[in-house]
Design a protein around this nucleic acid. Sequence first.
DNA 1: TTTCATGTAACTTTAATTATTACGAATCTT
DNA 2: AAGATTCGTAATAATTAAAGTTACATGAAA
Lengths: 152, 152
Amino acid sequence: MKRDSRLSSVLHALLHMAEHDGPMTSERLAECMNTNPVVVRRTMGLLREAGIVASARGHAGGWTITADLGILTLRQLHEVLGEPAIFAIGNRNETPDCLVEQSVNAALDAAFAEAEALLLDRFADVTLADLAADFARRHAERRARKGVGNAK
Amino acid sequence: MKRDSRLSSVLHALLHMAEHDGPMTSERLAECMNTNPVVVRRTMGLLREAGIVASARGHAGGWTITADLGILTLRQLHEVLGEPAIFAIGNRNETPDCLVEQSVNAALDAAFAEAEALLLDRFADVTLADLAADFARRHAERRARKGVGNAK
DNA sequence: TTTCATGTAACTTTAATTATTACGAATCTT
DNA sequence: AAGATTCGTAATAATTAAAGTTACATGAAA
């Protein structure tokens, strides 16, 4: 299976949009993420339905953020994307008649449920504003390393 | 992508083997799990390399457990299977130049790392003997519900 | 020496994501 | 009003990884 990278993609897109004045087209976002504009529209369309972004057609159209980045969390975005399956490992048969397999499933399910709960809690802890701040920090660091702005 | 169900499969196989006297053939194990004998051999072969099971060819051949079920954990089996990817969700690009994407990756990676650590800890908590005991409990319960052994 | 069973390579099928093509609909500019 | 721009979306193909299948070699027991 391929891994679902849409959460990563929409985060990337939203942060670029936050750094950018005015709407960004699907075309430009697609360039940022090395993908296809149609893929961008499909994924961003889900965020639009959730009221997180808005889109406009025609000249000077494109995508804009409408949500408050200080409130929007990774968990909300995960939900907006339809809560895709988190694990690449799973039971062979979800509803087995075999009692042996039922024991196996119960043990695995319990472990996966705990891990999923923790992951979603961590997702809920991180807002888009947190990510934007982290980016700003990395950006400042890079500038410092390059010596940009150092009088000399 | 399909989900990897080999851990579930080998647990199922090991418990059936534990309940069974003498070696079990790939054919019989495959029937238990609704799969193909070659798939069983492929997967069980990894366990053999790790010294968890032994195989014998020819008449009266098949698979037998050599490990101590009281010590063998889900985590060890996960490792023996090559530590397959746990998550079906991931970063779009693992080594991006883009600072924005680096921030996104860092946040997601941190959350996934925590969830993975928890999952592996839980896997380490469960031995095959625990699963066998759980199966025995379920088996007894079913017998009780059916009234088997109830004098009447 | 025949039968049974594993060992493995090569190939096919299946399932899921992502990418692409094509075209329609709306909006802005001139 | 014409034309360019941009989203909306359906339909289809490509990609990727797991699981299944076929074929045949190897070895052990009756």
